[in-house]
């Protein structure tokens, strides 16, 4: 019995294509489930921050709520606005979703669990996060609606501006780690919580999280939706399954940014207690996928925390913050991180 399973297993491993597809499924399925429960988590967290209960009717503690939402959305009619561009209207959500999932290809879950261990991983991530905005722009234009179009314009300007700050924040990481391979970036941060890059690159760490908020169009930077001004922004005309896909893309992007923050600035799968006396010798001192997931969840929680805490920015202030505050700070800190490397203040892998 065991031999048969083993031989089947070996055969699958020898078939490169099938093996890769299996790996993709193993990454994507938990991701979609995580998105479903992230919406539940969001409603519970924001509920308790606003002294409410949150969803508690469907299933124990309301845990089945996300599935109820999904089925409701899937069974609803997709309304096509008059004179909308049918083809682009339907493709836009898919264009928004694809990069959010594709970027996970280079994310290392631990030292060996990674779909594609490529050298230009950081660049690949930057390229894919910059593609997500197409879904929003095309949705806004194809809807043939002025609110949707206004939302799309805002999203486009915002994404292009904050991409620069985000890119520069990652350049700092790149200089310290000396590699664009995400696995090597994590390995360069070895040595406990004070060796991770959030400490030497603290301003870049903060700026990366702020730009991440702006890139994913989340509060307080959710100008693309801005329901108090432009109804629901770019997806105002979307309903049913098409809306669900936009929703999926937004939350998948938030999880992705959280995971990337964990990798770039918080040591990925490495343990914070590495090399500490007593606790460093137990299993807590070992790097594992659990640490990576825990860090990702912490950053995911922060996304919700921001939303419950801050009111929406005014649009001109968003632009001012991006161009006149964040980008100059990143420029200075990139130079400083180069100095830190040259002077040997931050030595990689120590």
């Amino acid at each position: 019995m065991f031999e048969m399973i083993e031989s089947v297993f070996n055969w699958i491993q020898s078939q490169y294509l099938i093996w890769t597809v299996l790996k993709i499924v193993v990454i994507v399925l938990p991701l979609i489930t995580a998105v479903a429960f992230y919406t539940y988590f969001e409603r519970k967290v924001i509920g308790s921050m606003q002294i409410r209960v949150g969803p508690n009717r469907v299933g124990p503690l309301g845990l089945i709520q996300p599935f109820a939402d999904v089925f409701k959305l899937l069974l609803k009619e997709i309304v096509l606005p008059t004179n909308a561009n049918r083809f682009l209207f339907v493709t836009a959500p898919v264009i928004a979703l694809a990069p959010a999932f594709a970027a996970w290809a280079v994310v290392p879950f631990n030292d060996f669990l990674v779909l594609a261990d490529v050298d230009a991983g950081l660049l690949y991530v930057l390229a894919l996060t910059s593609l997500g905005v197409y879904g929003i722009i095309i949705a806004g234009w194809a809807s043939n609606s002025k609110y949707a179009f206004l939302g799309a314009m805002r999203a486009a300007a915002q994404a292009v501006s904050y991409e620069i700050a985000m890119g520069f924040a990652l350049v700092g990481v790149l200089i310290l780690a000396g590699s664009m391979n995400l696995r090597e970036i994590v390995l360069a941060q070895q040595g406990g919580i004070f060796d991770w890059y959030w400490l030497p690159l603290f301003p870049l760490f903060v700026i990366y999280m702020i730009s991440g908020l702006a890139e994913t169009n989340r509060a307080p930077f959710d100008m693309a939706e801005g329901e108090s001004e432009i109804v629901a922004g770019f997806h105002v005309e979307y309903s049913g399954a098409a809306f669900a896909v936009f929703f999926l893309a937004e939350y998948a992007n938030m999880i992705l940014i959280s995971g990337l923050t964990a990798i770039m600035f918080a040591g990925g799968w490495l343990s914070p207690f590495e090399g500490w006396p007593v606790i460093g010798d137990t299993f807590l001192g070992q790097g594992s996928i659990i640490w990576f997931l825990a860090k990702t969840v912490i950053f995911m929680f922060m996304f919700l925390w921001y939303r419950a805490t801050w009111p929406r920015y005014r649009y001109d202030q968003i632009m001012r913050l991006g161009w006149k505050v964040l980008i100059p700070i990143t420029l200075v800190w990139v130079m400083l991180s180069a100095l830190m490397t040259v002077l040997g203040i931050v030595v990689k892998g120590s």
Binding site: A127, S130, V133, I137, V160
Partner: peptide, 26 residues
């Protein structure tokens, strides 16, 4: 030439063409 390939996507597809689309749509 993976560096050039990805930079082409980052710079042209991710930034320049977004602004292009922005203008053409208006």
């Amino acid at each position: 030439a993976e560096f050039l390939a990805i930079i082409l996507v980052v710079v042209y597809v991710g930034a320049v063409m977004v602004l292009f689309l922005f203008v053409v749509m208006m």
